[in-house]
Design a binder for these strands. Structure first.
Lengths: 347, 347
DNA sequence: CTGAAAGCGCTTACAG
DNA sequence: CTGAAAGCGCTTACAG
């Protein structure tokens, strides 16, 4: 590998000058700068990252904290691929790379009480690698553990969980508006008994979607009925179970807003199992717009999140913290109601 | 951050000894080893990775080459999340981390002729970070570009593409057997005119699945008919288009083996659009067992790949190359036929 | 605008 | 078994 020293010798300058050409080009005379740049390009030189990180005490890597060994064994992010895509392309435009952090705990056994694989190990990992910043993906119950990161002073941006700290912010969808849109849409179709299957307690997006449900109801001038709010956990099985219970009631709802597509799919299956037609007997609307939404039968009407935008926004917030000391405001991504067949408005 | 020097001073030994305790514990006397270990643990010391990488000329990171800015804008891996999960947990058990490589090209514009974002840039990235090895995810057309990596001498393991080089190997599913299983299953159900919608030309798994189709036919003593083999590209649209054409024929097939679930879903939609009932009028079997397979209507019979096993096997192959000079044989993961409704055997 | 020098925190022959 | 020393390849005050 060609080193700065070699470039320096070839150009008849010191390594310090070569370094300056790459780090503070303005402080180098145009002539020598161009000379160094040309030679460096010809020899395909680029500074060794390990050496650079060592001397600057900061690498060009951003850590990704993604807890994969969660108690909920089947935990899956609804749109990890898009997220990574967005993160990667936004980060790479500024020369940063994503390091998927893993602790030895990830490999297997763990004491089942812990919510995130040893946050201390992650924080130490972070220092060892001189990471420039951290992106935190919430798996639903890591919120508390995340504060260890937020308080480490490192630039942090969390996804879908409110994070605060000296250099921490977060990005989330405008969950309340999205949910309100869904409910208003159902109300406009004539539904008066609109139930909701919420996400788990303590989850930020879940709470916001429930708020949005209430707001949508109020905006449509529909009364709030406590018994129409049932609690799920974002996963399909809970959607199935809660829907079954709702349909077994004496006065079942005529429409259901599920706070995730997974639950909405579960609800669809429960309706089918109960011999209940969707949307004729009961309308269903979901949230997320994951791939299956358009494939289930009937195709699911849902509130789409800007999946790739999540990654882009997270990267943007992180990058801005890397250049300045200002902490960006939390980002709230707009959502979009995607009308398909399960709500009945297409008939 | 606590450094080896501090530990050394506290223990009254040299930094060299501290280093040895962590790297060649056998060369240190039991007494001093234990002393150093205890102090290090108490102070939560762990060696700085940048310094270590610099002096050893090798980091504890494994690069992930995942081309996200492909010409095929909508390129998606069918099970990236499971793959990453498997990779991460297997790698972390040995202290390695995954670095998602990105070149500046990833951010946007690229000359449309290139099949992988500047492989040269990736290779240089690899050296700059002193990566220990590389995992290559094929997006279907990167095979050629991958050889640049394979010949760099760095330990490489590719997924779903045959890679050879001084220290390169690959992992793939046993695509031929899986396809043969699917075809034999259809034949056992009485089908005699079994068509296949293949993957794209030049793609390794696609070719193997076509081979398996032929083998299955032969094993069921069914004649091969060239006109029953049509070419898709693994994506839904091609499945839709090819299925439509197949069904429009004078003597349409009674069963179709699609070389991917995405295409099988497309085929299902085409059948529905053509007023053709599945499985009554035509049976469909897919390949992959992605999440939607169980959700489409009718639920898709398919050949399941060991998604997480891909990651685990890739990590295993890489790790073994990291400790020894032997190059592991290519890994061929077993597949499993998952019988649901679209093949008609459940009736 | 540029160079010499110190320093980032490890690892590893080389002596002893 | 252990230490002193050189070296990994950069960056950055400090002089000039």
């Amino acid at each position: 590998m060609v080193t700065a020293r070699q470039i320096a010798q070839l150009c008849g300058v010191s390594v310090a000058t070569v370094s300056r050409v790459f780090n503070r080009p303005a402080t180098v005379s145009a002539a020598t700068r161009e000379h160094v740049e040309r030679v460096a390009r010809d020899l395909d030189f680029s500074p060794n990252e390990a050496a650079r990180a060592l001397s600057r005490q900061r690498s060009t890597m951003v850590g990704l904290v993604w807890d994969t060994d969660h108690r909920r064994h089947s935990w899956r992010h609804p749109f990890l691929q898009d997220l990574l895509l967005g993160l990667k392309s936004a980060l790479s435009s500024r020369g940063y790379h994503l390091l998927m952090l893993a602790t030895s705990d990830d490999s297997g056994s763990r004491n089942p009480g812990a919510s995130l694989a040893d946050p201390v190990a992650y924080v130490s990992m972070t220092r060892r690698h001189h990471l420039a910043g951290l992106v935190l993906i919430d798996s639903g119950t890591d919120a508390e553990a995340f504060s260890a990161f937020a308080h480490s002073g490192l630039p942090c941006v969390a996804l879908d969980v409110a994070l605060s700290g000296p250099r921490a912010t977060y990005v989330t969808s405008d969950n309340a508006s999205g949910a309100a849109d869904a409910v208003r849409h159902l109300a406009a179709l004539g539904h008066r008994r609109i139930a909701t299957i919420t996400g788990p307690h303590g989850n930020v997006p879940a709470a916001a979607r429930t708020d949005g449900y209430l707001r949508g109801l109020a905006e449509a001038e529909l009364p709030f009925r406590e018994d129409l709010v049932v609690t799920g956990d974002f996963y399909r099985e809970s959607g199935f179970a809660e829907m079954r219970r709702l349909l077994a009631r004496a006065d079942p709802p005529t429409a259901v807003f599920a706070a995730s597509d997974e639950m909405a799919v579960g609800a669809l299956l429960a309706a089918r199992a109960a011999g209940c037609r969707v949307p004729d007997d009961v309308a269903v609307v979901g949230f997320d717009d994951i791939e299956v939404a358009s494939l289930v039968d009937p195709a699911l009407t849902t509130v789409a999140q800007d999946k790739r935008g999540f990654g882009t926004a997270a990267a943007g917030a992180l990058l801005s913290m890397l250049d300045s000391d200002e902490v960006p405001e939390p980002v709230r991504l707009p959502t979009k109601l995607v009308v398909r067949d399960s709500c009945g408005s297409q008939r």
